[in-house]
Amino acid sequence: MSIPFSRFSDYFMTVAKTGNLRKAADQLHISVSAVHRQIALAEEELDIALFERLPNGLKLTLAGEMLYSDVLRWQKEYKQTCMRFDEIQGLKRGAIELGLIAALSDGFVVDVLATLQSEFPWITLNILTDDSDVLINKIITNEIDVGLILDPVVSAQLDVMSFVEIPIGFVMCPDHPLAQHTHLTLSQTLDTRHIVPDQPLVIHDRVMAMYKKYHANPAQITLSNDIRLIQSMLKKNMGIALLSYLDVYSAVEKQELIFIPLEDKTIQPLTLALCSGSRRQLSRIAQLLIRTLTEQMEIKFNHALAGFK
């Protein structure tokens, strides 16, 4: 941004560069008399001549050269001041501290961050991937600006900016014999191998509650506490799994896996929440990130899941 501190400084710099009132007026798109008046008023107020009037134009006096040098310096410093203002606003400089659960390391969050980085290439993105409990502590202690976490505990120190409910369902390879079903009960799946999410995965407790409720004992079981490994095994048609839609939505969108929602209202869905600290002063760029993530959460989950009903 190049904004002079006064109309005079703009006129003065243009006359100094052109050495001619007419040329300066043409560049400024004003009359010659307006330029002359500004220069004359300044010289009168400063009580010193800034230009020598020559037959072929104007030439800076010693005082004029000193002023010219100072205005150049002031304009440069003004640009730096504007940059500092932008840093405060968070739109030209600065960093965003974002916390994510591992399930979001691929998919819509990466798309949002890529768009943000494209629009604001000077932004520094500090991204932490960890368990929800760890992220909640870091949000509360203001170590990160915002976090996407599962099942946040109600706290006066935690602001939930937005949230979506994530259903649980059966996940399998498109080639699996059960993949043609639009509805499945747990009893229909007991003859096939179950890939069971183990602790400390958040989905583990929900899945074990399902098995206990229906006294279900799958004939064959594979345990894993790594969602990516579970996905890989499902893609290889090594069994089926009870998972949240969040765990597999990216693979489902790519038609690499099938998701069949579990029709059991007694099993609570997971809650994916976008949270920040209640006392955290968020920059404008962090606020923009929150708005964009909220919109994409709605699109990816609420809108997509409507198609399952």
Rank of each mutant, 00 (worst) to 15 (best):
L234G: 01
L293K: 00
Y68V: 06
R206S: 15
L58Y: 12
T124N: 13
A42Y: 12
M238V: 08
T18F: 10
R84P: 03
H215R: 10
L234F: 05
V202D: 07
Y249C: 05
E97Y: 10
S224Y: 07
H176S: 06
Q89A: 07
A216R: 01
H36I: 04
Q296L: 07
L98N: 00
P177M: 13
R7E: 15
K235A: 05
L128V: 08
L125Q: 08
T129W: 07
G169Q: 12
F12L: 05
V112Q: 02
L243H: 00
L62F: 09
M13L: 12
L201E: 06
S31N: 08
S6Q: 07
A49L: 13
M66G: 05
A49I: 07
M233I: 08
N56L: 10
P218D: 07
V154T: 15
L234A: 01
D133G: 06
L234Q: 03
P200I: 11
H194N: 01
K213L: 12
Q287F: 00
L262P: 10
H204S: 14
V146F: 02
L100K: 02
D70N: 14
L282T: 05
P167L: 07
A25W: 01
V202T: 12
V110A: 08
L243Y: 02
A209M: 13
T81Y: 13
L289G: 04
